[in-house]
């Protein structure tokens, strides 16, 4: 795949990157690091993981950009990148302190809970993770923190088990999920591809007897297509990959999205996600590595 190698080459040229052609940000940089590591470009990834380490606050957290220490939701992505970087044999012990402090910060955080109400069908008493400290728990930050904790070997940790229950609870009964609500004032809400894909990554290896996970897998299979926007397409394919569902046309779709950038080019975030989606979910899934 020449286009994939071209993509990796572009990522390697600027591993510390922003959402667009702007100031470097933690999320796109961490995803670029993971894409490069998955593509065997460990040395180039090092620049990104070092940059992330340079952002780490004394409390162990990573903010959204340099000089923007809050909110701290990208901490999970940085931990994922450090763990995968440290998993390379020649880098044994690297980022150990960063990972430990990052995990400690993650485990110190709790989304706000409240009592059940008639207005919402989901269980707001479950403790998971918010986007911003002091607010409620939502799907994507919870899923990303679960991924980081599982990759660090904390699959059986009570916080992870409760967060998994929250992710399942927030799946819409007919399949898929959105930012984190299911039924409000008696009306079932619409699912979306990106949060469903991210949630299913975190739910890989989990089982639930009422079939909610499988219905969400089915939602992705039924709704992802060549016309899906880039970011949603990539997270959806990663979610399917995490559940062993091959998408035969995936490479064609990703190549088409890669080439859709035209002369202006795709944003670094989209390039990183395309590179990850081409290589499958393995890089984001738990491994025996413990920091």
């Amino acid at each position: 795949m020449d286009w994939h190698e071209d993509n990796l080459q572009q990522l390697a040229a600027h591993p510390c990157c922003g959402y667009d052609c702007d100031r470097s940000a933690s999320e796109p940089t961490a995803l670029t690091a993971l894409a490069l590591i998955a593509g065997g470009r460990r040395d180039e990834a090092r620049e990104a993981t070092d940059w992330l380490a340079s952002l780490q606050d004394e409390n162990g957290a990573i903010g959204v950009r340099r000089d923007e220490p809050t909110p701290r939701w990208p901490t999970s992505l940085a931990v994922l990148a450090w763990l995968k970087s440290a998993a390379q044999p020649e880098m044994n012990g690297l980022y150990r302190s960063s990972v430990e402090r990052g995990l400690a910060w993650i485990l110190s955080q709790r989304g706000k809970t409240r009592s059940r109400t008639k207005a919402a069908s989901h269980d707001p008493t479950l403790v998971a993770w918010p986007w911003v400290e002091g607010t409620h728990s939502w799907i994507e930050p919870t899923a990303l923190h679960v991924l980081a904790l599982k990759m660090a070997g904390y699959t059986a940790h009570p916080r992870v088990r409760e967060a998994v229950r929250m992710l399942i609870d927030r799946q819409i009964p007919s399949g898929g999920c959105n930012y984190g609500n299911t039924t409000i004032l008696g009306q079932q809400l619409r699912p979306h591809l990106q949060p469903t894909g991210v949630a299913l990554l975190a739910l890989a290896g989990e089982s639930y007897r009422h079939g909610r996970i499988q219905r969400s897998v089915g939602y992705l299979q039924d709704n992802v297509s060549r016309d899906t926007s880039t970011v949603s397409l990539c997270w959806a394919l990663l979610g399917l990959s995490a559940h062993g569902r091959a998408t035969p046309a995936a490479e064609d779709w990703l190549r088409a999205r890669y080439r859709s950038g035209g002369m202006k080019g795709l944003s670094p975030l989209k390039r990183a996600l395309i590179a990850l989606a081409v290589q499958g979910a393995e890089i984001l899934l738990p491994s025996p590595v413990r920091a």
Binding site: P71, W138, P141
Partner: peptide
């Protein structure tokens, strides 16, 4: 901006 307030912008709701 969602990057600072979340999706949904839950800081505002609180």
């Amino acid at each position: 901006p969602g990057i600072k307030y979340g999706w949904p912008k839950n800081v505002l709701h609180h």
